[in-house]
C-alpha cells in the first residue's frame, strides 16, 4: 500500500472526526454505562450475599439471562424488538441501558466473589468490637473487596470501551460508525479501520495506565502488596 497524498489527506482529515466521535460519544457511552453497571453490580451482589429471599432468585435469573445471550442480540432486542411492544427508546439511551444491564450482570459476579473472598474473621472481629452488619460492610468488608475487585473491574471497563462499537448496529453515531461512513465514501478500508483501531488502543492504554495508578494507591492503603487470604 503506497501512502499516497490522497490517503494521507483522508487519514488526516478523518482523524479529528473519528476521535471527536470517540470523545463525544464513545467515552460518555462507556462512562455512563459503566457507572450504572457498577451500581447494578453492587446492589445485585449485596442482595445475593445478604440472602434476601425472592430478590435473590430474581438476581440469579437476571444474571442467567444476560450471561447466556449475546450482547449484540440484546442490543437488537431492545432497540428493534421493544418497539413492537410500543416501547421506543432513542438509540443512545437504549445503548446505555443495554450496556449497563449487560456489564452489571458480569460485574455483579466479580463484586460478589470479591466480597466472599474477604475472610469471615473480618466480619466476626467487627461484631466483637460492637459494630453492626451495615457498619462492618461499609467500613471493613467492601473496601477490602474493592481492592480485590479492582483489577477484574478494570478489565470489564476495557472490554466495554471496545464493545461500545457494537452500538453502531443500532445507529449510535460513535467512533466506529463514523469510521464506517468515511470508509464507505473513500474505500480506504485498511487505512481507516487501522486508524480507528489505534484510537481504541489509545483509550485502552490510558485505562490500563489509570488502573496501575489506582492499584498502587489501593495497595498503599492496605499496607503493601501483600493481600492476606
Amino acid at each position: 500500500m503506497a501512502l499516497s497524498e490522497r490517503l494521507v489527506d483522508i487519514l488526516v482529515t478523518s482523524f479529528p472526526r473519528i476521535l471527536g466521535q470517540g470523545i463525544l460519544v464513545t467515552i460518555p457511552l462507556t462512562v455512563i454505562s459503566f457507572v450504572l453497571a457498577l451500581i447494578i453490580a453492587v446492589i445485585c451482589a449485596m442482595i445475593q450475599i445478604a440472602d434476601i429471599r425472592g430478590l435473590k432468585q430474581l438476581v440469579r435469573f437476571y444474571i442467567w439471562i444476560i450471561r447466556g445471550t449475546p450482547l449484540l442480540v440484546q442490543l437488537y432486542l431492545v432497540y428493534f424488538g421493544l418497539p413492537d411492544l410500543g416501547i421506543m427508546l432513542p438509540a443512545f439511551p437504549c445503548a446505555v441501558a443495554v450496556f449497563a444491564l449487560n456489564e452489571g450482570a458480569y460485574c455483579a459476579e466479580t463484586v460478589r466473589a470479591s466480597i466472599e473472598a474477604v475472610p469471615r474473621g473480618q466480619m466476626e472481629a467487627g461484631y466483637c468490637v460492637g459494630m453492626s452488619y451495615v457498619q462492618i460492610m461499609a467500613r471493613i468488608v467492601l473496601p477490602q473487596a474493592f481492592r480485590t475487585a479492582f483489577p477484574p473491574l478494570s478489565n470489564s471497563l476495557i472490554s466495554m470501551v471496545k464493545d461500545t462499537s457494537l452500538a453502531a448496529n443500532i445507529t449510535v453515531m460513535e467512533m466506529f460508525m463514523e469510521t464506517q461512513r468515511v470508509a464507505g465514501r473513500t474505500y480506504e478500508h485498511l487505512a481507516l479501520y487501522s486508524e480507528v483501531a489505534v484510537i481504541y488502543l489509545l483509550f485502552c492504554t490510558v485505562i490500563t495506565w489509570l488502573q496501575r495508578m489506582g492499584e498502587r494507591r489501593l495497595n498503599a492503603m492496605n499496607g503493601g502488596d501483600v493481600i492476606h487470604a
Partner: peptide, 30 residues
C-alpha cells in the same frame, strides 16, 4: 458485646486499617 471483647487465634485485625485505626474503629463507629 459492649461489655466483652474477643481475641482470635488468627488475630483478625482489619486488614484495611492501621494498628491505631484497628483499636479506635469500634470506639468511634460502635
Amino acid at each position: 458485646r459492649r461489655h466483652t471483647a474477643f481475641v482470635f487465634q488468627n488475630f483478625n485485625l482489619f486488614s484495611n486499617k492501621t494498628a491505631l485505626q484497628n483499636v479506635t474503629e469500634g470506639l468511634i463507629v460502635a
